[in-house]
Design a binder for these strands. Structure first.
Lengths: 151, 151
DNA sequence: GACAGGTTGTTGAACCGTAAACTAAACTGA
DNA sequence: TCAGTTTAGTTTACGGTTCAACAACCTGTC
């Protein structure tokens, strides 16, 4: 007979869970507010980061979608907007005629270069510098466990 | 002379930061997927939770907005939708004629009672049970530091 | 007691994300 | 070879969020 009763969170676990929800919201608020002054949101910023790290600043749409955890549909929309802002452009993929490569423009690269120091500083002020280093490492292990394998 | 050079994240810090972004996204995905089967999203669920904990299952709109970290405008829209689903209703506030109280209906309460065990189970499977207990506590301290005081 | 300034909550438009349907191309195997 | 399936990316419609403007009310001060 399998247990039917739900295993509630105890008071401590519940407190931590709510802190997590609050903390995540707070961090996102701060990062978004700061990036807005560059006309970017976190999603667009991450796209620029991943393109900047890629060979020839270019990635297949589906590959990029996975890296930034956006649905393909969402990425299509986001890239279209960024394209009309001149930050990226689209190139047909030579090896697979279904494929499309997103490629960062010089203007996109320059914007990233300009925004990055301020963004990193936000990440520090919102999280990294606020937290005890040992706790920060533990947070890393925790999140790696969350992302790891099944389901 | 103040330092101008940005203090970049070192490799370890960057790895942890990216794990954090990935982990948070993963957790939200899982929770939303599960709540969808009750016709709720995380925002609506949290509204029900906070109302259920309040005296007479009732809270001022602005108070509720703060607790669930939604803008007032967003809460107005969300509550309107939930009202038309029969989960909450609105009552004028006697002491302040600008005020509006959101109050949970019996139907809203019953939905919460039905959804809660499954939701708690998701929280466990997505985070609590996946993480070493000591790391989980560290995560709590980290998030409390994020939420605490200035800015 | 009136007015300046802040607060509460709503509105409507613009914007962004989601979901499903769809086109085109590439595999797969019989 | 070719029917069936899978994959890539886009399109469309819809729903939710944000933003700015607004009306109604409260609060303190002169």
């Amino acid at each position: 007979m399998t247990p039917v009763k739900p295993r509630w969170l105890n008071a401590e676990q519940q407190r931590i869970w709510r802190s997590f929800l609050n903390g995540v919201a707070r961090i996102n608020e701060r990062l978004d507010a700061e990036l807005r002054s560059f006309g970017l949101d976190l999603g667009e910023y991450e796209i620029l980061v991943h393109l900047s790290e890629a060979d020839r600043h270019m990635l297949r749409m589906s590959d990029l979608a996975e890296r930034v955890r956006q649905s393909r549909s969402r990425l299509t929309h986001t890239i279209s907007r960024m394209e009309s802002k001149g930050l990226v452009s689209r190139v047909a993929c030579p090896s697979d005629r279904r494929g499309v490569n997103a490629i960062m423009t010089e203007m996109g690269y320059q914007l990233l270069v300009k925004a990055a120091p301020s963004h990193v500083d936000s990440v520090r002020r919102a999280l990294v510098d606020r937290v005890d280093p040992a706790d920060f490492e533990a947070l890393g292990r925790a999140m790696e466990a969350v992302v790891r394998d099944p389901d």
